[in-house]
């Protein structure tokens, strides 16, 4: 399964790519921003993949100019409640902190709201990850009240908020 727009391609994660993702994920430059920071073994990775390789989880390898640069996902989808949880990391330093993150974000959000027909996305963000907080707020994510002392904070994005923000973002691409 492939999704393509805004100059980027999302290819659904297959078993042959999980070692690539494991190597990215174990790099401290990525793991420092993850709630689970322990070293991931090949066995843990295959067990994880078997748990997420279904219609309630969509993990995509991000490709830009035929180069694999990171991972983006919507997971734990509840089709009754029309909600899922988003996540992204860009591994490639040349592509980090550029407009690519926004191109990829719009592509995944469109997939969630238009293809999967979700009404709401959630995200957990460590409260020291200022870039991720700002990034998600640009898309319209709002923090859930009463989490001042929470380390891994919960944010929600409503479809209506996203549609409003999306127009302002994509005109800059």
């Amino acid at each position: 399964m492939k999704i393509e727009n805004y100059g980027v391609v999302l290819t659904r994660l297959t078993e042959e790519k999980i070692e690539l993702v494991r190597n990215w994920r174990n790099d401290p430059k990525i793991s420092q921003y993850m709630e689970f920071k322990e070293y991931i073994t090949p066995e843990m990775q295959i067990n994880w993949f078997r748990r997420i390789d279904n219609e309630n989880n969509f993990y995509f390898i991000i490709e830009f100019e035929k180069k694999e640069i990171g991972l983006i996902n919507v997971r734990d989808i509840d089709y009754n409640e029309k909600v899922g949880e988003g996540g992204i990391f860009i591994y490639d330093d040349d592509c980090l902190n550029s407009d690519l993150s926004f191109r990829v974000g719009v592509l995944l959000n469109d997939f969630c709201f238009e293809t999967l027909k979700l009404e709401k996305l959630k995200a957990h963000i460590l409260n020291n990850n200022k870039r991720a907080i700002q990034f998600n707020k640009m898309f319209g994510y709002k923090i859930v009240d009463g989490q001042d002392d929470v380390n891994n904070q919960l944010y929600y994005l409503l479809r209506s908020d996203y549609i409003e923000k999306k127009e302002r973002i994509i005109r800059l691409f």
Binding site: N97, S101, F135
Partner: peptide, 17 residues
């Protein structure tokens, strides 16, 4: 500019705007 600690994807977009 990419070496400036505050540089981010948001700033890239702000710069384009």
């Amino acid at each position: 500019f990419r070496d400036v600690e505050e540089w981010s994807s948001i700033l890239a977009l702000s710069l384009i705007a």
